[in-house]
Design a protein around this nucleic acid. Sequence first.
RNA 1: GUCCUCGUAGCUCAGCUGGAUAGAGCAUCAGUUUCCUAAACUGAGGGUCAUGGGUUCGAAUCCCGUCGAGGACACCA
Length: 618
Amino acid sequence: MVRFAFRRSRGLAMDFRIGTDLEINEQPFAHAVTMNLFAYFHTELVQTLGRLAEAGQLPQGLDLARLTVEPPRDPSHGDVSTNAGMVLSKPAGKPPRVIAELLAEALRAHPAVTEVAIAGPGFLNWRLDDGFWRARLGELLAAGARYGDSAMGGGAAVNVEYVSANPTGPMHVGHARGAVFGDALASLLAKAGFAVCREYYINDAGAQVDVLARSAHLRYREALGEAIGDIPEGLYPGDYLKETGAALAARDGDKWLNQPEAAWLPAIRAFAIDSMLAMIKSDLALLGVKHDVFSSERALSESGAVDRALQTLEAAGLVYTGTLEPPKGKLPEDWEPRPQTLFRATAYGDDIDRPLKKSDGSWTYFAADIAYHLDKYRRGFAQQIDVLGADHGGYVKRMQAAVKAISNGNAALDVKICQLVQLFKDGEPFKMSKRAGTFVTLRDVVEEVGKDVVRFMMLTRKNDQTIDFDLAKVKEESRDNMVWYVQYAHARTQSVLRRARVEIPDLALDSAALLAADLAPLGDPAEIALIRQLASWPRQVESAAEAHEPHRVAFFLYELAGGFNTLWHKGNDDASLRFVLAHDRRTTLARLALVQAVAYVIASGLQVFGVEPVMEMM
RNA sequence: GUCCUCGUAGCUCAGCUGGAUAGAGCAUCAGUUUCCUAAACUGAGGGUCAUGGGUUCGAAUCCCGUCGAGGACACCA
């Protein structure tokens, strides 16, 4: 039995302890799960509150849901902060500062806490000594790029459905955003301890794939030497179907040439869908995007799953026949009042009830999608995420209503809408691809700037913001270019390590040597500040995963790169702060351990994005 | 007309699910920089968080209204 309730609180109940001893090499590190230090202090405080309640100093059974332990917004306030005084004041019947003082007393006894202060309306702030931070660095070095792996998800199954582009043509840039977003979100959730399934829903049913079949048949005739002239209105004009037509001709010869449509359509449709799917998969491979499961709408429908799903809804009294109001705004020309089979979506928060059957009696796309989400639920996914394009905004409420209905409220669907990507080059809108006819393909963009730049760029904005993607600007070497700046910081860590090997050739710098380094020489405020930044990575992972917002990782990495460069430049002003000091091996080793830690965390973040860290800027 | 998303510095955007004096980058201004190769670094100025109410110890964040931008609006997928 898995309980999800704890996900709602920001502090997480964890069943492992953080070491406060300063012997960094003795940190217990059985599983590659690292500590969110704020979660650690959250549990400490909860335990303290329990003891205070037993001692009669506070009421029993206080609701701790709103208790947070976070870094203060202003670092001058301290390293860690809690709002306990304020949120417990009313239920406990004591002033905020009194509660804060009770907790402060316990904190002062903690070996790593150097300073405790009560501030403002009742914040409790405290600082941690340098040894505590050096111990975090030790943990980090032991974990390597797996630093930040979390047990938060508790192995709970999550299904992330993304891309799901219609198998009728190549992928374009809009698809690329959803693909990268879904892929990174899945990786992020996996890092946060969820059992993630990456899924693609193939829309291989409906009129569109019949159109595809007719378009492919035309190209097939062309491949056999017929002059087909212009592509008729209503068929897909893209050149990419020439290959499909030629491949079909090669396989089947003139077998379909003088046949009625009914004879060839199913076979050619299947052939064309396979061909399109192969093309889509190769486009995705270019981006490094992979899925675990491909689900076919047609297969689902033919298995009778749609009928069964609708029967369960019907049994729950959620299906009825009714006539909808005419749509507001522009009225479709052929609109007429007509009784339809409807899903009572309004019972679950939607604005109107939604049609399940078309006028010809077949199921709507929505009906099939209900069956598909029920299928995911039956496969064990109580947490589902759909990544959709901006034009699907109006679809969210009804799908969430449907998921609640088919699961009796036991499953939750989060829908992430990815806004548009506008391509520019030197400020001018980027030209469309000839090959695809009407849009810029994913392939065009990847060939232009490379897979890693595309992936990173797609994650530098929150999903509900539009992205202006300038293909020239991402090649700029400046702080204005987030991708370059982060990659450059990683390259600089490597360049420092290379430099050290030249300056002190006999100093061992492998990961074991750095892990064993005595970190005591690290004490400059700028060094400790950088460790603080690094040590916040586990918390960043958890909060980004919880919010389903991978873009936070991009901003974190950007700030970390800034912190590293700050320290690097301090070495220019003050030579004693350089990473490599030929005359002082002990300090050099400690500093290089810090440099290596920066490299690990950047690599760890880039891993979530599916981006390779750069070892050297060319 | 309804619904969704958005509105934060001159520009491009963050803001950790309600916290303290709202932050970065670019641009501007003033410094530093023959340095572990790097177009980099330090500092300053710049804000009625579109707007009017409400909720509470506390609101850019939550609720309602208004204005503005984009998108979607039976039977397509």
